[in-house]
């Protein structure tokens, strides 16, 4: 059952994005997009490089005009808003790293109050409270007087999110907010976004290449494929096999169990493995990494491995060799291949 029009905070209907020049020539990046996002949802935009994620986000925040179709925010066409009105509804975080020296965290976050303050940008008590609330919401209280160019990439990204929170908008759009971050910061930032969406009822749209965090945290995914755009809960898209279409013609395989991609290997030789538990699973992974196809013992492959952690026994033809690490085991197996 699809929700009513009025419930859709962001709604694209048969929308096309791209570039238009005066001479009526058009370059359409993507067309026939019909997706939406509701209140309280964290929405991840996923797709291959060049598929139009950035163009889509730029069109939604109003930096470039749409080519055709409906782009609605809160039931009104984006292009019908004036800049000031749009700034009260939607804030934006770009992928660019902001390096301004002598700019304190507080002052940067206070820029979020831009649409509300007077001509000179004077902060009232209410503005200060909202700024402080935003800094606390991203977990940076105590950082108010730190200079932004002395922060780590993760902290800086959180400050940029705090700035958009201080703007107090229904919608937040972020272009690859996790691009420069390490694994733990990636999880943390996406988790913060999820919490903000569900606790504050915001609609947060972000593009990302990081499938694992997107699947773990987002409520909805807009999956930008080459010939279509699909939307759904991450698990729906996995079950429908949509993710494999992200990278067509590439040597990547979407693992539906793990929810992540791996390189499609051309398995060479066969091996069978006996054992159980964690060591058994990781032995299979090591074999796959070394281009083995792990088969059932009924096939009688000429390499058979017995896992009895911390010891591995390899039976090759009539030889039987014992190993104490997967590293030496793999070296031995690759040596066999040479012969």
């Amino acid at each position: 059952m699809s929700p009513k029009e009025a419930e859709k905070v962001i709604s694209l209907e048969n929308a096309a994005i791209g570039y238009k020049w005066k001479s009526k020539t058009e370059y359409i990046v993507k067309s026939a997009m019909s997706v939406y996002a509701l209140k309280g949802e964290l929405v991840a935009v996923i797709g291959e490089n060049g598929v139009g994620k950035s163009t889509l986000l730029k069109t939604i925040v109003g930096f470039q005009p749409p080519v055709s179709g409906d782009f609605r925010i809160c039931s009104k066409q984006i292009s019908s808003y004036r800049e000031k009105e749009l700034a009260l509804l939607m804030s934006f975080v770009s992928t660019e790293i902001i390096r301004v020296s002598n700019l304190s965290v507080f002052d940067l976050v206070s820029l979020g109050r831009y649409p509300y303050t007077n001509w000179f940008g004077k902060l009232l008590a209410k503005d200060r409270d909202l700024i402080e609330e935003a800094i606390i919401a991203v977990g940076l209280s105590g950082y108010e007087n730190r200079m932004v160019n002395h922060l780590s990439d993760g902290e800086r990204q959180k400050v940029m999110i705090a700035r958009s929170l201080a703007q107090n908008t229904q919608v937040i759009v972020l272009d690859e907010p996790t691009a420069f971050l390490d694994l733990s910061n990636k999880y943390e930032v996406v988790h913060i976004l999820h919490r903000l969406a569900s606790e504050k009822g915001k609609t947060i749209l972000f593009s990302t290449h990081d499938l694992t965090t997107a699947i773990a945290e987002s409520d909805r995914i807009w999956l930008m494929l080459h010939d279509s755009v699909e939307q759904g809960a991450p698990e729906d898209l996995i079950l429908n096999g949509n993710f494999n279409a992200i990278f067509p013609n590439k040597n990547l395989l979407f693992d539906q169990e793990k929810g992540d991609f791996r390189i499609r290997k051309q398995p060479g030789r066969k091996a069978s493995v006996y054992g159980h538990g964690l060591a058994y699973n990781w032995t299979i992974k090591a074999l796959i990494r070394n281009n083995f196809e792990v088969v059932n013992s009924t096939e009688n492959p000429n390499i058979q491995i017995n896992v009895n952690f911390p010891e591995w026994t390899v039976m090759h033809l009539s030889d039987e060799t014992k190993f104490h690490s997967l590293l030496s085991l793999c070296r031995y197996l690759n040596g066999l291949e040479m012969e």
Partner: peptide, 23 residues
């Protein structure tokens, strides 16, 4: 002096400035 709020917003670049409602 009258432009000081604009100038603060320009620090983050024109995209940010526009997204905060600056003309």
């Amino acid at each position: 002096f009258l432009s000081s709020k604009f100038l603060d917003a320009f620090l983050l670049g024109e995209n940010y400035a526009r997204s905060m409602g600056m003309n």
